[in-house]
Design a protein around this nucleic acid. Structure first.
Lengths: 198, 198
DNA sequence: TTAACTCCGTAACGATCACTACAGCGACTA
DNA sequence: TAGTCGCTGTAGTGATCGTTACGGAGTTAA
């Protein structure tokens, strides 16, 4: 691919990301994206096999952007209760969710709709990687806190944490003014309680 | 409206509910609904002002069906801890969410997309009524448990409960096999902890 | 019987959709 | 200079969208 081609591809991708963010999957028509990118539809189909593939790339792009500014999920110092360490991290994650990351909106839409298999699979794959990350961290944090291992519980708790992120995001989309600190307190406290921490 | 007309309207409404449930808002085309109902498009527009209004009625219908089989949110007996009473109710609510009620799917989709203002407003209105219900119940339950009133906390907790329902539903749509009992335990425990219950 | 009203059937409306065929441009290679 | 390749521009494909115009059945009321 030529340098000029690379630029065009990038222009299309970012234009698509903007339009999808503003209008959702179905609202993100090729003609809109084409207009936004300043390139004809034929160029879009030169770089991307279909609209489905294009949106898949958009999801990946937006995810990378979001993930790159997330706080590091470092293993807490030995002796630190999981609840305390989790509370710290959740505060930051929840705050970033408040800003309504596009990839979550698009991904959740793709989840609820049928069809668009490529974009949907892309989202599901990224989501799985997050879930694995949470599970790993929880495992490490439990070890650091001195709890005995319980893989099943950790797996369940990881799902609950992810679930709370989803719910929070949806509530934000609905216009609810959720108090992130209360929500983070509750989530961390629930996990701590489940682990038998005071 | 004639008795025959009433039957037709009902046929259209239920056909629309089926199609929307299977295909989502955008997938629920007038032609599909028309075919499913065995009536022409002109009949649909005789009874409903637009597709938007029709889907609004669908959301209301599905909500009523779902709500009518929900357990009663009776005020717990005096002295019962809120966490215990809430755990009981959440178990049943979460289980019904597992079955993937259509009105939640459609409503969440309308939330994430822009546009379709009538159907969206219908969903938001129903959702608000649920939130109010939770808040009232929590208020009563707190009184029954002997806690002193804290309107702000109750409002926040009601939002968190609703948020957990949303998150659970989305997780189910994603194909996660969430353990409802664990989830209900955690949610109830979190609320109990926030209220200062042991 | 006539008039009015309700509802259905047909047949379109214009708009827009995702997608493509194809010619031609500029830049690079032989 | 001729040929090739990467990309763009134009103009369209057929399909389907939500919606409507309109005529005519079927029933009801006078």
């Amino acid at each position: 691919m030529t340098a000029k081609g690379e630029v065009s591809r990038e222009r299309i991708l970012h234009a698509a990301a903007d339009v999808v963010g503003r209008h959702g999957y179905d609202g993100a028509t090729i003609s809109r994206i084409s207009k936004e990118a300043g390139l004809p539809a034929s160029s879009i189909y030169w770089f991307f096999r279909s609209k489905d593939h294009l949106v898949g790339e958009v999801v990946r792009l937006r995810f990378d952007e979001w993930f790159s500014v997330q706080p590091e999920w470092g293993v807490p110092a030995p002796g630190t209760p999981v609840g305390v360490a989790l509370r710290e991290i959740l505060g930051q994650v929840f705050r970033s969710v408040l800003e309504g990351p596009e990839f979550l909106r698009v991904g959740q839409m793709l989840t609820l709709e049928r069809g668009e298999p490529v974009a949907r699979d892309t989202y599901l794959g990224l989501r799985d990687s997050i879930l694995a990350l949470i599970r790993l961290w929880l495992d490490d944090a439990c070890a650091a806190a001195g709890h005995r291992r319980n893989a099943r519980l950790v797996r369940e708790l990881a799902r609950v944490v992810l679930l709370c992120v989803d719910g929070l995001f949806l509530a934000v989309q609905l216009g609810s003014e959720v108090d992130v600190d209360t929500h983070a307190d509750l989530t961390a406290a629930a996990v701590a309680a489940a682990l038998g921490e005071g």
